[in-house]
Amino acid sequence: MDDRKTAARKPARRSGDRDGFTAEERAAMKERARELKEASSKADGEAELLAKIGDMREPDRTMAERLHALVKAHAPTLSARTWYGMPAYAKDGAVLCYFQSAAKFKTRYATLGFSDKAKLDAGGMWPNAFALKEMGPAEEARIAALLKQAVG
């Protein structure tokens, strides 16, 4: 057997990874497992969401606080919770949108993401995640419109 073919099939490992996941990815998976374990006993997902926002660094904390206020104002039927340790908002128990801080996975911008449950369909292709570096009036207006559309 040709050793070159066998070696080519093995996925490349990232430096320092034992199992192919970064430390940040492993931490997110542990947070999700804890969330699932505590879901049945936890009545107030909003308190946990607000605590996660409080732990964020600036400017992500301010953007997450503003997003929370926008959700409360424009999509009040969504319930606050955490998802993989990130602030998230659910409809009928399923995550509809989430906020990922830039520090979460050491990226250069925060992300506002939507799940497939969000009704953002626009033809054959549409965005389901948005980079956020700042949140001014124009961004807030766009987010409010996206939230209203996502909820349907």
Rank of each mutant, 00 (worst) to 15 (best):
M1I: 12
M1L: 11
D3N: 12
K5C: 07
A7F: 08
A8W: 01
R9F: 14
K10S: 07
A12K: 13
A12R: 14
R14C: 10
R14Y: 10
S15H: 15
G16F: 10
D19F: 14
D19P: 03
G20I: 02
G20W: 01
F21G: 00
T22Y: 00
A23T: 13
E25S: 15
E25V: 14
R26A: 10
R26H: 13
A27S: 14
A27T: 11
A28N: 07
M29P: 06
M29D: 15
E31W: 09
E35T: 09
L36F: 06
K37F: 05
E38N: 10
E38D: 13
S40D: 14
S41H: 14
A43Q: 15
G45W: 04
A47M: 09
L49V: 02
A51C: 01
A51K: 12
K52D: 10
I53W: 04
G54V: 09
G54S: 08
D55S: 12
M56W: 05
M56Y: 10
P59N: 02
D60C: 08
E65S: 04
E65H: 07
R66L: 06
L67N: 06
L67H: 07
L67G: 00
H68K: 10
A69M: 00
V71Y: 00
K72C: 01
K72G: 03
A73E: 15
A73G: 02
P76I: 00
T77L: 13
T77N: 13
S79A: 15
R81V: 14
T82D: 07
W83Q: 05
W83Y: 15
Y84T: 02
G85D: 04
G85F: 11
G85V: 04
G85M: 03
A88K: 03
A88H: 05
K91D: 05
K91N: 11
A94V: 11
A94M: 09
L96H: 06
C97H: 03
Y98S: 14
Y98I: 12
F99R: 04
A102F: 01
K104D: 08
K104L: 06
F105I: 04
Y109Q: 15
L112N: 07
G113D: 04
F114N: 06
F114C: 03
F114E: 01
S115G: 06
D116K: 15
K119A: 11
L120G: 04
A122D: 15
A122I: 02
G124N: 08
M125G: 01
W126P: 03
W126R: 04
W126S: 08
P127W: 06
P127A: 15
N128P: 00
A129E: 02
F130K: 01
A131S: 15
L132R: 09
L132Y: 04
K133W: 01
A141H: 03
R142N: 12
A145Y: 07
A145Q: 13
L146Q: 00
A150L: 05
G152W: 08
G152E: 11
